[in-house]
Nucleic acid binder design. Sequence first.
DNA 1: AGAAGCGTCTGATCCAGATCAGTTTCCTGG
DNA 2: CCAGGAAACTGATCTGGATCAGACGCTTCT
Lengths: 223, 223
Amino acid sequence: MLILPESHGDFRRLSGVQDHLKFEVLPQGSVFFDQGDTLKFFFFVRRGIAKVSRISGDGHQMITELLLPGDLCGALCALDRCPYPVSATAVTEVEIAKLETGAFHQLAEKFPELHRCSLEGCGTKVRQQRSMMTSIAMERIPHRLWKVFLVIAERMGEPTPAGLRIPFPFSRQEVAEMIGATNETVTRAFTQMKKAGELQETGSYVTMLGIKDLEELDALADS
Amino acid sequence: MLILPESHGDFRRLSGVQDHLKFEVLPQGSVFFDQGDTLKFFFFVRRGIAKVSRISGDGHQMITELLLPGDLCGALCALDRCPYPVSATAVTEVEIAKLETGAFHQLAEKFPELHRCSLEGCGTKVRQQRSMMTSIAMERIPHRLWKVFLVIAERMGEPTPAGLRIPFPFSRQEVAEMIGATNETVTRAFTQMKKAGELQETGSYVTMLGIKDLEELDALADS
DNA sequence: AGAAGCGTCTGATCCAGATCAGTTTCCTGG
DNA sequence: CCAGGAAACTGATCTGGATCAGACGCTTCT
């Protein structure tokens, strides 16, 4: 029985799809696909966290998207058969379900709903990317950090007595590449926020002290 | 007979759609829809240029997208019936073709291809937005400007003896809102580039001196 | 013609964050 | 247990672009 976590644009409601899925477990650090590859499948994340990044002409790297449980990745490129303009790497151990694009096209003929689902997933992606873009363009570092926390909390946040807790398996450098900053600046911002009692780091988790729910976090990230 | 300009994700190939389109001409400066509106139609741009912008919590404004002839706008929100998270404004006089969402759903049942088209248009949008995001995060002002020129040139560029010419009806402030800068900085950058003989402004057109084709511009914008 | 208003331009100053240069953990393997 | 290497931290300096302040056009209205 196929069980995918809740997400926009997932396909689990559609019978007939699960027979074509192939499950895989990828160790931390492994690369799903590289910038420039042309692949014949796309995939869902079932467990773990991955990053989607892009290297520009001058060698600088930026993380353009996080893949959390329930996310669909690669649909856009797989569908119009263009080479991937980005790379995807496992930040933690990641469990995925692959779907061949050939199978997708077959299925889409029987279930037009598939396109509708992809479109929804795509819409979410556009909105998230836009939010991050405006944040990078107009807000300073601490705000951008809250926005990253918010994206993860929306999907994986757990309320605790101390505050909202999220998995946060990223290096300082990775965070820097998400928000358009340097690892030094990120380090300083974390130190500052911890000293101010806003944040607590334990292992690969971050707890936002005093934040009880998403709404409060939302207000912080949006201001 | 319906004629829409060439674009990714346009619907003109599909017979049966044009009967449901309503044409309108909007004067410069008029607002298509406002942040927060819930609309029951989306539209194609047939002529002219519009901007899609977002105001953040702290009052700052950013242009997240340009609408050029052939572009489809509002499909994502219209389809999942959520309020528009952005506003759209005519930068020049704009001629549009509207399609009611109700009609879209009807048509989509007969022509599953419609969803496919929307998905393609969405993919282009994601890629463009990602490109601008990385540019704002990692590149300095002149590079970001070249990137804006490139986006317009890809669709509306015309080679002239002096160089590649594009329509450019934007104020300094609008340019600033596209690239995450201030109008003063944009002014200085333009002055600089004109003094360096890279650029020429005539009326609401910009000519990139010495640039013969898109490839050359691409190289400049990507470096 | 004059006034008022907006957009462009220019100069002076300031500052968030980049850059450079270490030092200090914290692993991991021998 | 120590050596070596990567990541995290910290401090000092530098700079691109923001911010502030004003001057100069160019329209539009009276």
